[in-house]
Amino acid sequence: MTRRLNAVGIYPGVHAIKRSAQPLRGPVEIQVGGTTLAIGFGMARRILVEVPQ
């Protein structure tokens, strides 16, 4: 999983924006740089984020 995320530019320290989420544990859409990705809930919830102040 980390390999796939890494390949599209989601790696430790990167700045990401959550754009929207589907209900009932559906996919989550996140934006990294110029890319918007939809990733499954299971994968998304294992990404730990820090909210900037």
């Binding site: 996919p27 890319t35 990705l37 939809a38 990733i39 499954g40 994968m43």
Partner: peptide
């Protein structure tokens, strides 16, 4: 079924 993992094109 694998989870969704797709780039959303503009």
């Amino acid at each position: 079924a694998p989870e969704v993992f797709i780039e959303i094109p503009p």
